[in-house]
Computed example of a mutant assay.
Amino acid sequence: MIIDTHIHIWDTNKSSYGWLSGAPELLKRTYTIDELDAARKTAGIDAGVFVQADVQMEDSLHMLEVARNSEWIKGVVSWLPLADTGWTAKLLEEKLLKDEYFVGVRHLIHDEKDPQWLLQPAVIESLKILAAHNIPYDVVGVLPEHIETILKVTELVPDLQMVFDHLNAPPISSGAHYGRWGELMQEVAKNKNVYAKISGLGTVAGAQKFTAEELKPYIGFVLEHFGADHCFCGGDWPVSLLAKDYVYTWEVYKTVLSSLLSGEALASVYAGNAIGFYGLKL
């Protein structure tokens, strides 16, 4: 079994998606889950998880509705207004905790000017609420400072499970092995509540460097330091189309992973770890 833990859909009639105004033309349209069906079958993907694409509840409610009507989508990583602890608690109590497809939370911290956005007192209080309910948090960081912030979050909210989306943008394009990114990832990996999501590496690397050979050192690095029991995968469709197509993306990931792992460890990275982290019901 292979679970794609990072799929986006968006409907420009349902939410604002402010970031799309500055995005490449390829992404400036509605993307539906039906568009992915043939490619995911070819790629051998058995189940999927939606991940938020807007800092509005309309986006999350849209994903939850689509998930309820999709045979293979098993969870939704929602947005929550973490900077408003009262509103966060209210949405959880009145809506999200009652929804079987709600499995996690994310905020677009890479779009915030302050890389320490998560350290605001109100946000920390909201993260404590997530931890109390065993709700994991997806970290979409792109800077070393984002990893430094997560190191502080682990001290302030020690029970919160977190995962670094797209491995927090390793320096693949520069070919650095492994620079400040590597030092910080090695440090944060010591915390057993922090996981690594092997996803989005095509857009991180750039299309010309999105090959198994180029990615292998970085994927091998996170497997070594986080452990095969703390990594899982995501295709990052449709953003990943900026680099290569969906089937190619998964071919690269599978080539690298099968060269580094086998048996139970490989099965854990493909599915078992994601099931445990998000509490997926298959």
Rank of each mutant, 00 (worst) to 15 (best):
V76T: 10
K98Q: 15
E94R: 01
H133N: 15
A131I: 06
Y137I: 08
Y137Q: 04
L127F: 03
A67D: 09
I73T: 13
A67L: 04
W72R: 09
P136V: 05
D84W: 10
W87P: 00
E125K: 14
K95D: 05
P136R: 06
E125D: 15
A89C: 04
G104K: 10
K90A: 08
L127G: 10
L92G: 07
W72D: 14
I124N: 05
K74C: 03
E94N: 12
V77D: 10
A132M: 01
D84A: 11
H107T: 03
V103S: 06
H133A: 03
L127Y: 08
I109L: 13
E100V: 12
T88S: 14
P81W: 11
P115C: 04
W117C: 01
V76A: 09
T85D: 07
Q116D: 11
G75E: 13
L82P: 04
N134A: 02
K98W: 09
I135S: 06
L119V: 05
G86N: 12
Y137F: 14
A131W: 03
H133G: 12
L127I: 02
W87Y: 06
I129H: 12
D111W: 01
L127Q: 06
L92F: 09
K90S: 12
G104C: 12
Y101A: 07
I124S: 05
P121H: 04
K95Y: 08
S78Q: 02
Y101R: 15
L91Q: 13
Y101G: 02
L91N: 07
R68T: 11
G86W: 04
S78F: 10
T85S: 09
Q116N: 04
L96R: 00
V105P: 07
E93A: 14
E93G: 00
P136L: 08
V105M: 14
T88N: 13
D114I: 01
P136H: 00
A67G: 08
G86S: 07
E125I: 01
Q120W: 00
A67C: 07
S126A: 15
K113M: 10
L119Y: 11
H133V: 08
L130A: 11
E94Y: 00
W79S: 09
K113C: 00
L130H: 07
W72V: 05
K90F: 15
K98R: 14
K98V: 02
Y137C: 12
R106K: 08
K98L: 13
I124C: 00
I124H: 09
S70Q: 08
E71I: 04
R68W: 12
E125R: 13
T85M: 05
K128C: 00
K128W: 02
V105G: 10
L92I: 06
K74D: 08
D114N: 15
V123D: 02
G86L: 11
D84R: 12
D111G: 01
H133L: 03
L91T: 05
K95A: 04
L118T: 04
H107P: 05
F102T: 13
L92M: 13
K113P: 02
W79T: 10
A67V: 13
Y101E: 03
Q116C: 08
L80Y: 01
F102P: 13
A132Y: 04
A132Q: 14
W79N: 08
Q116W: 08
S78Y: 07
T88I: 07
P136Q: 05
